[in-house]
Nucleic acid binder design. Structure first.
Lengths: 168, 168
DNA sequence: GGAGGAGCTGAAGTGGGCTTGAGATCAGGC
DNA sequence: GCCTGATCTCAAGCCCACTTCAGCTCCTCC
């Protein structure tokens, strides 16, 4: 805003520049701005002018997407990062460690599923004897009226949390 | 339909039974039916009556969900399974192997990300020297006008399909 | 035979992460 | 000064996997 640094033309990027450099569509950038994930100064004619370091924020958003992290969560993390300046190495380490943990959780989840699935291939699960994946109806029925569910709720995000609950 | 087996009351399940046994909401079952993933006979009063083996299909849908597989893909796989009878061990092995492959792909993806992220934590990426994750703008800029993107497509589903395309 | 819970249909709503469209303004090269 | 392409805003639309709702019928038990 009232930064004393004079804005030279090379100092900032137009939205088109950012689109070309990141591959993120202008409409997505608008959307991220709406969510408060990124910000831009405006030209005299009300056009967005991005400081160069904003590219890094956008890169982080893209990383988060690859990690399967929702924008709401990204927002939370970004709330701790400076919007007007380049984040420090410490900032980045904090974020990347946090996301690394997430990643490991997801990996553990997948490995669990993999074990179950591998077991199933071997055991010929359709006989429904000891399969963990295809929870047999008969056992369910035999367990009485208590609703022993398969433990999978509707929403993906909720589901992931549940599985984490189970695994930890 | 014109199956000669007499329908004894115990032979089929009401939608409520299925809900209790699988934990899947009735509305979701309606939806799956709409998509052709499951089917039910109807009572004289137009109520759904599920053959017992339909529980297995539903279990498979739940497994697919845990694997992050979309219903469209499930549908594709289900097209090769018998709707009116219990699938064979071979059928199940085919499906589970297919999904197992998927799972491994996803795991490899995560491991790749993990490596990148770990590397980044160590290298202090904010200096933007050799980071694979935070693709430095300067390098991009130095590479000339060619749109060297970050290589991350918009949609998760599209991305998954892309990966399949690449891997198969 | 009556009460009340279970089930039916079709349409609309939800949420995340955007895209598309309309209609207008801005920026920069000739 | 003009033309063209870039950009602006706001609203609406889209896809997926469901859920919710309204208004009605069915089934079971007493």
């Amino acid at each position: 805003m009232s930064v004393s640094v004079p804005k030279e033309p090379d100092d900032t990027l137009t939205i088109g520049d950012v689109v070309r450099r990141t591959g993120v569509a202008a409409s997505a950038l608008h959307y991220y701005e709406q969510l408060g994930l990124i910000a831009a100064h405006r030209s005299a004619g009300n056009q967005r002018r991005y400081p160069r370091h904003m590219i890094r924020r956008i890169s982080l958003i893209l990383v988060a997407k690859r990690l399967g992290i929702g924008l709401a969560d990204v927002r939370e993390v970004f709330a701790t990062l400076p919007m007007e300046t380049v984040p420090t190495v410490r900032d980045w380490q904090r974020v990347s460690r946090r996301w690394h943990t997430r990643l490991e959780d997801r990996k553990r989840e997948i490995e669990q599923l993999e074990r179950e699935l591998t077991g199933c291939i071997g055991c010929g699960c359709l006989s429904m004897t000891v399969c963990q994946l295809l929870n047999p109806e008969d056992e369910l029925g035999a367990q009485g009226p208590g609703p022993r569910r398969l433990g999978l709720s509707a929403d993906r995000r909720v589901r992931q949390r549940r599985e984490l609950d189970v695994l930890q």
